[in-house]
Computed example of a mutant assay.
Amino acid sequence: MVRALVANRRGKAKIGTPGDAPWLFPGGRPGHPIGDDRLGLRLQKIGLQPRQDRSTALFTLAAELPAAILARMLGVHIQVAVRWQKASAGDWAAGVSRRTSAGRA
């Protein structure tokens, strides 16, 4: 499906052949990808909810990874990653502590 999309992609300012454009979703300005707002609208038109899906993915990651790794991986401040962990009830350090204690008993 991705190969078909690349072969048939189009954008308002697309210049050259599909093989010349570096973006899977070319935007309205030459040399730039589509904006996140426009991509979100396109996804909504086909029934996807990008905000809800993004939040679900972030909360899942926050519940499974230490805040330091999450922050570095996503390029967010450590305090933001800690807040996501608390909101998702993914206190990673406490979870590791409980597993370690349970394994020793």
Rank of each mutant, 00 (worst) to 15 (best):
M1E: 10
V2G: 09
V2W: 11
R3F: 10
R3T: 12
A4Y: 08
A7V: 02
A7G: 10
R9P: 00
K12M: 08
A13W: 03
K14W: 07
I15K: 10
I15N: 07
G16H: 04
G16K: 03
G16A: 06
T17H: 09
G19S: 15
D20I: 02
A21N: 14
A21W: 00
P22G: 02
P22E: 05
L24D: 01
L24M: 09
G27R: 00
G28T: 14
G28R: 13
R29M: 09
R29W: 06
P30S: 14
P30Y: 11
G31Y: 00
G31W: 03
G31S: 07
G31T: 01
H32A: 13
H32V: 07
G35D: 11
D36E: 13
D37P: 00
D37Y: 11
R38T: 14
L39F: 08
G40M: 02
R42K: 07
L43M: 10
L43T: 03
Q44F: 06
Q44K: 13
Q44S: 11
K45F: 09
I46S: 08
I46L: 09
G47F: 04
L48A: 12
L48M: 15
P50V: 03
P50R: 01
P50C: 06
Q52F: 10
Q52P: 00
Q52L: 14
R54V: 05
T56W: 09
T56K: 15
F59R: 07
T60A: 15
A62K: 00
A63V: 06
E64F: 02
L65K: 08
P66A: 12
P66F: 03
A68T: 15
I69T: 15
I69D: 12
A71C: 05
A71D: 02
R72H: 14
M73V: 09
L74D: 01
G75W: 07
V76D: 04
H77V: 05
H77E: 13
I78D: 07
I78M: 06
I78F: 13
Q79H: 11
Q79V: 13
V80F: 08
V80D: 01
A81Y: 04
R83M: 07
R83K: 14
W84E: 00
K86C: 07
K86Q: 13
A87T: 08
S88Q: 00
G90Y: 00
W92C: 02
W92P: 02
A94V: 08
A94R: 11
G95M: 05
V96Y: 06
R98T: 13
T100G: 00
S101H: 08
A102Y: 07
G103R: 13
R104F: 09
A105Y: 13
A105K: 14
A105H: 14
A105T: 13
